[in-house]
């Protein structure tokens, strides 16, 4: 079990800056995110798009913003738990007991939810029966490509993941690549490669088709696909892979006894505390009158929530307001020289 002064759920811009604020005032913290990388929406949805409204930064991309935030917290050596979803938050005496999908357990007086619009999860096939085969013969990501050797694999999607895996798996497997339209959104070089392999008969390319059914008793046997012109085909297949990108799912947050307004958590604007003492919500996921879903608002909210954490983490001390320019203690924490 890990003990910490505050646990941050979400490694988007808000979670990252909140960590900075906590460490600056001398509190320990760790960060959990379901994504396998740091940066939330900025890194997952728009790494290359420029942002123009970060104060004092005239222009930076989602990826640059993330890298700068990571640089800013470098001195603090904060522990990240990536690829883990926080599933449970339970009261335990004066602390919160927090459990992740990987079984990591935290004990902390303060939980800061910086969860955006929820955790990023793979988008699934609309066909209901697909659930039956999930993680056995139907996957949304690949952990061990060896299982596909010598088998028939049907890959759905039109982006880089679908194309890259189609090229890779075509070396040792029989590959069907199925996409809803003629154009692909992956890198042009990979698209060309796929067309080349299709010409050579190494990839069976089926465009303008979508899945309508999946069949098999104990093992997956076949799938039905339908074209725009209502033409049906049945494909025998051992495995199905779906690459439709990620979607944000509120998921477990809805079960933690918090007052919610649609997909957001209600907070006060003094501490950004929820209806549960010691649980705060900041960034896109919080709601209060006048809330703006902007990165700059998340920074402000995180700064105030961090101060509120001090009280519960250090009940016998008093928080003292200090500037980074002049505080010796803060400079020590940052590892910079005082003059």
């Amino acid at each position: 079990m890990i003990k910490t002064d505050a646990l941050i759920i979400g490694a988007g811009p808000t979670g990252l800056f909140t960590a900075h604020q906590l460490k600056l005032i001398g509190l320990s913290c760790e960060i959990v995110d379901n994504l396998d990388k740091i940066g939330g929406q900025c890194i997952e949805l728009y790494p290359d798009k420029p942002i123009y409204d970060i104060p004092a930064v005239p222009e930076c991309t989602g990826e640059e913003l993330t890298n700068n935030l990571i640089d800013q917290i470098k001195p603090f050596n904060i522990k990240f738990h990536l690829g883990e979803r926080v599933d449970q938050v339970k009261k335990e005496a004066d602390n919160w007991n927090v459990k992740t999908s990987n079984g990591t357990i935290f004990q902390t007086p303060n939980v800061i939810i910086a969860g955006g619009v929820g955790s990023f999860e793979p988008r699934k096939f609309p066909v209901k029966e697909c659930e039956k085969f999930e993680n056995q013969s139907l996957f949304y990501s690949i952990k061990d490509k060896k299982i596909f050797e010598g088998k028939t694999v049907s890959i759905f999607g039109g982006g880089d993941s679908a194309l890259d895996w189609a090229v890779e798996l075509s070396k040792n497997s029989k590959v069907n690549l199925i996409h809803r339209r003629d154009e692909f959104r992956g890198a042009q070089a990979t698209v060309d490669k796929v067309h080349q392999l299709a010409k050579e008969g190494k990839i069976n390319l089926l465009t303008k088709y979508q899945m309508t059914a999946i069949k098999g008793e104990n093992r997956l046997e076949s799938i039905d696909i339908k074209s725009d012109d209502k033409e049906f085909k049945t494909l025998k297949t051992d495995y199905v892979l779906g690459f439709f990108g990620l979607i944000m799912q509120l998921g477990p947050i809805a079960n933690w006894g918090l007052n919610m307004d649609k997909k957001t958590i209600e907070v006060d604007t003094e501490k950004f505390e929820t209806n549960q003492k010691g649980i705060y919500a900041v960034g896109d996921i919080c709601s209060y009158p006048g809330k703006l879903k902007l990165i700059l608002s998340g920074f402000h909210e995180g700064a105030l929530a961090a101060r509120a954490c001090f009280k519960l983490a250090r009940p016998n001390e008093k928080y003292r307001f200090e500037f980074t320019t002049s505080s010796k203690t803060i400079k020590e924490r940052l590892g910079v020289k005082s003059d």
Partner: peptide, 13 residues
């Protein structure tokens, strides 16, 4: 927009 629609639930023409 068409790229994003690839990811939508049951996209049609």
């Amino acid at each position: 927009e068409e790229d994003m629609l690839d990811m939508a639930f049951e996209p049609k023409k």
